[in-house]
Simulated assay, not measured.
Amino acid sequence: MATPSTWSAPTSRDVVFGFGAHSVIGDTPTLLEMTQLADREKLDLFSLSDHPYIGQRLDAYATVGFVIGRTQHLAGFANVSNLPTRPPAMLARTVTTLSALSGGRVVLGMGAGGLWERIADMGVEPLSPAEAVEAFEEAIVLTKKLSGGGPPVTFQGRHYRVSQIDPAPVPAPPVWTGSVGPKSLAATGRVADGWIPGHAADWLSPRYRASRPVVDEAARSVGRDPREVRTIFNFPGQITARPLATTRDRDGRWIGGDVGQWVEELTGAVVEHGASGFMLFSPRGGTPDLASLGAWAGQIAPAVREAVAKHVG
């Protein structure tokens, strides 16, 4: 097992780079090779989707724990946790344990739950959309209460309850959500630390432009600075050997380009639109190939960091 390092949770001034995977059990050797490459190249994060009703998929939290035990720098998270199948009091124990073992190299991704027909197949009582969002906000509040030490916690929510439970003596990891609807976005603004726009929406998309103000207004309504809620983008695209004539399709969605075009696009996203991080996915939204990950980690991420530093310096 790798010796735990101290991974600094990102601040509002940092830009994080990672990659996302939708890995089945047969992909294990490739996933481990990719995470080792990402760790050597000092990427910040890797993520796994969390669909426990798919038997072929690697379990997100078992895999995150295994990988961060074999790496020195890389942090992991479920993008995002399937909350209805993972009770928040137990989820708090999981992430604080991972944080303690790894020196803080974990992020807690949270979602209200999609694919409810499959979630119900796992024996979970279905919730209405409004109830699911209410439970989602309660869960974020409860997981934070069960972190960071202090007196025993009693929490009496509508959906989750604990009585006289000692919080872990470990700070809560950053909580990033995958909120989409207005009620869920507002909950993100009130209680979360980061937001991953749904459907791979980026900073130029109508979805982002309509959604981010909801997050910001909800943050202000409880006395928070909206900048405390970072925006991290799941960002699919191809990395090409030569420049593309156009980097976006007729609908405005990012296609990709060569290293220089990626660097220009992402630098602009940070400097002009306040982006806080990027998770690379393949052009079809799946796990990127090893060559693309190498270019992302070894060329694009360092160049964007350098370009952003010049702008802010």
Rank of each mutant, 00 (worst) to 15 (best):
A218M: 10
A186V: 11
Q156G: 08
F233H: 02
G148C: 14
L108G: 09
V215Q: 06
D121H: 10
V191Q: 05
G109L: 10
A219S: 12
P206H: 08
V170L: 08
T240V: 06
A218V: 14
A100K: 13
E138G: 04
D202G: 10
A112Q: 15
K144C: 09
A100F: 08
R190S: 12
V124K: 04
E137F: 00
A186S: 13
D166V: 15
P173W: 00
T240H: 07
D202I: 11
S128R: 09
P182L: 08
V133A: 07
H159C: 12
G109E: 00
R220L: 15
K183N: 14
V215C: 05
I140N: 02
V175K: 07
A120G: 05
Y160Q: 11
W203H: 01
A192P: 05
P167A: 03
P151M: 12
A112W: 02
E137D: 08
K144M: 11
P197T: 03
P206T: 00
A210F: 10
M110S: 04
L127S: 06
G111S: 07
I140P: 07
R212D: 02
A168K: 01
G103C: 05
T240P: 09
R220V: 09
I196R: 07
S205M: 04
V153F: 13
G237Y: 09
D121A: 15
P167R: 03
H199R: 12
T177C: 08
P236R: 09
M122I: 10
